[in-house]
Design a protein around this nucleic acid. Structure first.
Lengths: 295, 295
DNA sequence: CCAATTTTGTCATTTAAATTTCAATTTGAC
DNA sequence: GTCAAATTGAAATTTAAATGACAAAATTGG
């Protein structure tokens, strides 16, 4: 057997191989640290190729089978730490030795994640989930940099249920959300320092109209308590040059997942329908549009 | 299952176990990093005990079998007390033992974060950062649910530098990005399964025009390697009903932070200027708009 | 030392992983 | 479009790993 490392061999196939081979190579490269825990079968299932194909792929890389590849991986990577715990420790040690503000940031992010999962078990969380699942109309708002997060959340919720709207300031007012005649309307706002006046105005107005508010914000928001029915506070300080609101996306997705569970398995129908619609109008990689297919 | 780490469990048996148990525990502790590549059979042969004994030993540690032990090892964050505060650690233990579903998701998310921070140390990362800091024009794209992430990233980058644009399909083509006469143009795409045809088309077209591409995607993207100059793969499987792309936001913010460091402290001027502009036109909580202030 | 108990290994069985064969599908050249 | 070559997946087979039943060996307390 030649002297190439597993990584190098995989890299050769990422570009040059057949479709399935590229798929496998890409996946293996991306999750090289988890490969020792995998089997040819588990990999094949995850990436949607058959088990023999994975076996054959390992052969064409020059190994007898997937196990042999793992063997080689063991000697091959040698230096670097394998286990999650060791990898973490490496960051931590560097931090202590002064080399990395990065390691500190990682630790803060992990703590923040733990906290988000803690929030997901609260009474407030359950209440917010029920609202997001059952209320007729859901409006989602976010301004400045939180706009993207609001859109991200809204787009995902739209896969699960109808009548989800991203609140838009373009028209100069929030009439769509606030003057909705529907009684069963709920509002979600993503907001962080420095707080846009728009958010507070919107929240106040919603309150005055009896529209319940779920607020995702940071630890410095002092106006939310009075106005929000549920207020989820995520950490934003991760040793970066400014506060990062990225963990609102983590929270948002966990929330979406809870809504899915609340709605039950029948939502898969809608999910597939929405996916199909996207296929009709835009199309996915590796398929013709349905329009094409018909002709 | 209790809250101990694999290492702690093994340590208990090094002292207290029977002869064979001590042998096994000692061996496992000594070669804990190689365990993922082992099987119960291979271990039993190497240390001269029978295979069922190894299996029984794993049982008495609290695992169903050796495979389960490896599983745990994979997600074990190593019990560093430095990592989390006591309260959070306690919660982590609780989720891990009780509501297994969520605890497992949390572990997967932590592993993903570690991976992202590892990516941030690569050569590719440094290259992407340089591009994002120096190229004249930056275009950011994302479709379907990744649209929000693209917007989030673009909005933040706009705070740091001019000429950052969110690619919009509304006009039916990408002329803005692709027919830009500026030589120094770079493209960033956020994309995940199922891959929109738009992303691939855009990437291909960009490649043909010599526009470099930074691609943030998942482990299943088999078309990116040919087209992207840098490809950052984030984990998307967190034990949720569908793949979550939330960690692209975490990666995006870390990337933004790196760009900030690359640009140096003088960007703060721009940062403050943008913030002031927002104050002028929209206003922040707790202040009048500047317009108001004048009157 | 002996008997009760625990621990361990042998062998057969079950379960999971890898491999082979072969047919179906896809790809690429013309 | 058509055909040959290459690629891939389904089903059956082989091989390896894990487990269970039970007997042999070791340990413990007297």
């Amino acid at each position: 057997m030649s002297t190439k490392t597993v990584k190098q061999r995989l890299n050769d196939y990422v570009m040059a191989g057949s479709k399935a081979e590229r798929r496998i190579a890409t996946f293996m490269l991306a999750s090289i640290a988890e490969l020792p825990f995998d089997t040819a079968a588990s990999i094949s299932k995850r990436i949607g190729v058959s088990e023999p194909t994975v076996g054959r792929f390992c052969r064409s890389l020059g190994y007898q089978n997937f196990k042999a590849l793992k063997e080689d991986l063991q000697h091959d990577i040698g230096g670097g730490p394998w286990l999650l715990g060791d990898r973490l420790k490496e960051f931590h040690d560097r931090t202590k030795s002064g080399d990395g503000e990065q390691g500190r940031g990682l630790e803060l992010e992990i703590a923040s994640l733990v906290r988000i999962y803690e929030l997901a078990r609260t009474e407030h969380w359950a209440r917010a989930v029920k609202k997001l699942a059952r209320y007729r109309q859901i409006f989602v708002a976010g301004f400045q940099t939180e706009r993207g997060l609001a859109q991200y959340f809204a787009n995902q919720l739209q896969y699960l249920r109808p009548n989800v709207h991203l609140v838009d300031i373009a028209g100069g007012n929030f009439s769509e959300a606030l003057l909705n005649e529907e009684k069963s309307t709920a509002l979600v706002i993503f907001e962080a320092r420095r707080y846009s006046r728009l958010s507070e105005l919107l929240a106040k107005n919603a309150k005055s109209r009896g529209i319940p508010l779920t607020l995702i914000t940071d630890a410095y928001c002092d106006w939310g308590h009075d106005l929000a029915d549920e207020m989820f506070v995520v950490r934003t300080e991760f040793n970066m040059f400014w506060d990062s609101t990225a963990h609102m996306a983590n929270l948002a997705n966990l929330l979406i997942n809870s809504v899915f569970k609340e709605l039950g398995p029948h939502v898969e129908q809608r999910l597939n329908a929405v996916t199909r619609l996207h296929g009709d109008f835009i199309g996915y990689v590796g398929e013709s549009t349905r329009q094409d297919a018909k002709s």
